[in-house]
Amino acid sequence: MSLLKKLLHEPLLHFLVIGALLFVFYGLKNEGLNVDDKQIIISQDDITYLSKQWQRKWQRPPSDIELQSLIEHQIREEVMYREALVLGFEHNDPVIRRRLAQKMSFIADDLAEQIAPSDEDLISYLHDNKSQFELPARLSFVHIYFSVDKRGAKATADAESLLAQLQHTEEHEDITILGDAFMVSQQQNQQSEQEVARLFGSDFARELFEQNNHIWQGVLRSAYGLHLVRIEEKTPAKLPELDQVKDKLRNAWLAEQRATMNKNLYESFRSQYQVIVQGQVIENDVSISSQ
């Protein structure tokens, strides 16, 4: 089992296996098409394939004339392709070079897709990448606003005197008539620090999230003026359950696998080369992108 697992993570082996498969596959597909001869054979299978490709694009089968021109096009491409090979046009073409190099990384990508992560893999990935998946702390609170624009220097004293009054009353007052009118609702439910920052400014949000007591507190300064606040409920930050983020986790996990596979594949090839830059031998540098 562990050997198999180890083999499954060996990129060079993957490469060889896939390479062999591709070779066999394309060999079978191109059966009867002899590249060496000046002969081009379009089989019934080729025509069916062209027709299906057309249908996928246009949502209907090609007409006879359209099919005829598809075949013409195919023949033309084959002729030009072969003549280009005869002239060696595949060499020293930056577009073709890039495409071929890219195809190598597709192999690693495809390999990564074959591996399905277990729940344990995903859970450990979740714990290794807490900050990326953590659900932020949330607060429900009410606030009373004192407009500095309207009250000027009196605003602080007004807020403080109301705070003293509120802290000494047992019952909950009707706060909708206290303080000044404000376009942001007095009742805020289940807001994250980021969401509070978007409404009141980031300094206010930071200060508010440091509070824990469920009593009237203040005076907090927002981007607009002064506020008295009472926290009603605080939900601490926590990691989500696996089921809530399974798809996201799987995608992130696969992306990481792809990156690792690509990196390993590249390094296993790279180690076989001696690279000299301006007379200096460059050691296998793992920081070089696998792309």
């Binding site: 376009m183 978007r198 409404l199 009141f200 980031s202 981007a223 607009y224």
Partner: peptide
């Protein structure tokens, strides 16, 4: 009509 500026 009523408008409130961006907090930042």
């Amino acid at each position: 009509v009523a408008a409130l500026r961006d907090p930042e």
